[in-house]
Amino acid sequence: MDGLVRAWVDGWVVSRGAAPPVREPWGFTVDVGLVDQVSRHVFDTLGDDVDEGAVRKVAGGVTGAGVWLKVFRDPAEVGPWLGEGWWIDPEPGSLMTVPLVAVAGGDVPPGYRVREWTVGGVTRVLVAAPDGSLAARGQVTPTGATAVFDRIETAPAYRRRGLGSVVMRRLQRVAATAGAETGVLAGTPAGRGLYESLGWRVEASLTSAKFLGAGVG
């Protein structure tokens, strides 16, 4: 899918309230403004098309702690390209897509409460447990033909009860109703099984790396 990374970045910055992406020769720079994530450099190619030289150059130019790299290739391959001071998540994430249709479902079990609201172009779904604690959550940002799914989470005590599917189905319905045709997300290994069970497909592995500072690691 052409423009897949750009679609993910455009939706992610709205979802997280980050600065608009700055176009770079190799991808995008996004200012996030958090202590543990000041900014992120996102490369816009996938798999074998990722330019090792570009990754090495960008990583070598980072001097401040809290800068992240997002590279759509396996960490085992990307890791050796990064120098001292980089922490690399050893488990590869996944860039995934799904054709969007207004799927049925999304009802919560008896005793649970679900709430859905939209602010600033981002729709959030919350599932509260019978005692009022967080059971599951997620959010989606439609941006035209694509919609970015983000912050999908089920609390450990409430996993394997179908609540993640409830959240995803509701978000998918929101996105399809808004006119989006393709869903996009960057998922963790823990979430991949849920997404694949709902028809999502892996487009590329994802390496997440964070600069801890010169002389660290």
Results as ranks from 00 to 15, higher is better:
A175S: 06
L194C: 13
G3E: 04
P156V: 02
L206A: 13
A128E: 03
G17M: 06
G164V: 07
V184R: 03
A147K: 09
G187F: 00
A104Q: 06
D131F: 11
A175Q: 01
V114E: 08
L95S: 12
I88A: 10
V148L: 00
W8Y: 08
T154M: 06
R173G: 06
E91D: 07
G199N: 07
G199D: 10
S15F: 01
L198Y: 06
A59H: 08
W8H: 03
A128D: 06
G162L: 14
P21S: 10
K70L: 01
R159Q: 08
D36E: 02
D51C: 04
P20G: 11
L34R: 14
V202S: 10
R161K: 07
L185M: 13
G215H: 03
R161L: 08
D107K: 14
W86N: 10
R159C: 11
V71L: 05
P109K: 13
G27V: 04
L134Q: 12
T118V: 15
F72R: 11
F28P: 00
G144Y: 02
R169W: 06
R23L: 05
S94G: 09
Y195H: 08
L134M: 15
L134S: 04
G33M: 04
G61A: 12
T45N: 01
P110H: 13
T97P: 10
P20D: 14
G199E: 10
L82W: 02
K57R: 15
D150L: 00
V62P: 09
W68E: 11
K70Q: 13
T45I: 10
V216N: 14
T123L: 06
P92D: 10
G53H: 13
V67Q: 04
W12E: 00
G66I: 01
G106W: 08
T63C: 14
A155E: 15
V174D: 11
T29S: 10
P21V: 01
R137Y: 07
S133D: 12
G183F: 00
P80W: 07
F211Y: 15
A65S: 09
R137G: 15
R115D: 08
G121N: 08
S205G: 13
G193K: 12
R192I: 06
W68G: 02
A214P: 12
L95I: 13
G47R: 11
S165A: 13
L95D: 09
L212I: 02
V13H: 01
E91C: 15
R160W: 11
S39E: 10
R170N: 06
G111Q: 06
T182K: 13
L34Y: 09
R170T: 05
A186R: 07
A54R: 15
E203Y: 03
W86K: 07
L126H: 02
G183Y: 02
V148M: 01
V174C: 04
Q172S: 01
H41G: 02
G47S: 09
P189S: 11
G213H: 09
W81K: 05
V30D: 00
A18Y: 14
R73A: 14
V167I: 06
V167A: 11
M96E: 05
R137W: 15
Y195G: 09
Y195M: 12
S39Q: 15
V166C: 08
F211M: 09
G106L: 03
V174Y: 05
E116F: 03
F72D: 02
G183W: 00
